[in-house]
């Protein structure tokens, strides 16, 4: 595990580079940095910013990458996850991007990371003071599905007019008997701004409340940045008689046996067999290393990802 959790790619020395440090030009970084400071000063408020064209399509994390590029430095240790997993295509390519353009050490270990960029999960291991969580956001406006006009939603935030959101939750209860939203569950920041926590499962919402880490949210296509400073009250909306609840499972993780983590269902064959595994791949691997065994321990899906081989290929590519 240690050899994959401490990947460091040795890059060319900075003077041989044909682009600015951390990819974005300095003027763009300053603009994003100013937006981050205002976002931290007005928690939950969406700051417009001049989102740039990035070397990957919208929806692949352009907002998160721009945030990371504006804050990252050579002393950082960078982790990137996609739906909890360190070894998916999107996570691996973004991690390599920053290893290449920003000379940073990368890791899969949540505890060692100083910047964690994520698409739709917050790691199971509690975040620490000094860490920065960067979340990729597709739709920053929690009210957008209820009110399509930006001019109107701006006004609703300005006047703290959130009745429509409560009506929508109430309609959920009348239709389904419960609040059916499972991801991107709306939250109230410091009892003032309604915010979309990005499409993290509502299982992760309690991790936002009074978190010791800085939480930054970036939406590249929608050109918005917002933030939650550490130790800020984050309340998931609910009703007295329908309190906020997170997802629960009857199963435990098939590989590590965890009964406290967020589980993904994996279809195994076309005979209807399936298993539940931790969505947080590093959390699960660490538990297995510490001897925790689930009912399907040793299954082929428990094999380590071979990122070290991929890195070798990448380095050969750079050498050419």
């Amino acid at each position: 595990m240690n050899e994959i959790s401490e990947i460091k790619i040795d890059n060319k020395p900075p003077q041989e580079r044909y682009y600015t440090y951390a990819y974005l030009d300095e003027q763009t970084k300053r603009m994003i940095r100013r937006a981050i400071l205002k976002a931290l000063s007005i928690p939950g408020y969406q700051v417009p910013f001049g989102s740039r064209e990035m070397p990957l399509p919208y929806g692949w994390g352009t907002g998160g990458i721009q945030l990371t590029a504006a804050i990252i430095g050579p002393n950082d240790v960078y982790k990137c996850i996609d739906q909890g997993a360190d070894d998916t295509t999107n996570a691996v390519s973004i991690r390599r991007f920053f290893a290449t353009v920003a000379d940073v050490a990368t890791t899969e270990d949540t505890a060692k990371a100083t910047i964690i960029q994520s698409r739709h999960r917050i790691p199971e291991r509690p975040l620490q003071s000094g860490q920065i969580m960067v979340l990729q956001v597709p739709q920053p406006e929690p009210l957008r599905s209820l009110e399509p006009r930006e001019t109107e939603t701006r006004a609703m935030h300005a006047y703290e007019e959130y009745g429509l959101q409560y009506v929508s939750l109430y309609e959920n209860i009348s239709a389904y008997g419960r609040i059916a939203a499972t991801a991107g569950y709306p939250v109230m920041i410091d009892e003032r701004y309604l915010m979309s926590p990005s499409p993290i499962p509502k299982f992760d919402n309690p991790k936002l409340d009074m978190s010791p880490a800085i939480l930054l949210f970036g939406a590249g296509r929608e050109k918005r940045i917002y933030a939650v400073p550490p130790y800020t009250k984050v309340r998931s909306l609910d009703f007295e008689d329908y309190p906020f609840e997170t997802q629960t499972w009857d199963e435990v993780c098939a590989l590590c046996g965890s009964d406290t983590s967020y589980l993904d269902e994996v279809v195994l064959d076309d005979q209807g067999n399936h298993m539940f595994v931790c969505s947080d791949s590093h959390f699960c691997a660490e538990r297995r290393e510490n001897g925790h065994l689930g009912p399907l321990a040793g299954h082929s899906l428990a094999q380590k990802s071979d990122d070290s081989n991929a890195n070798r290929v990448l380095q050969e590519g750079i050498a050419k």
Binding site: Y21, A22, E26, I36, L40, S41, A70, I71, I72, I214
Partner: peptide
């Protein structure tokens, strides 16, 4: 070194603003 120095300065300013 504008790129490196403004980055390290920004992190100090961001930490101060976040805390």
């Amino acid at each position: 070194e504008p790129a490196r120095q403004s980055q390290s300065c920004f992190r100090l300013i961001m930490d101060a603003t976040a805390l």
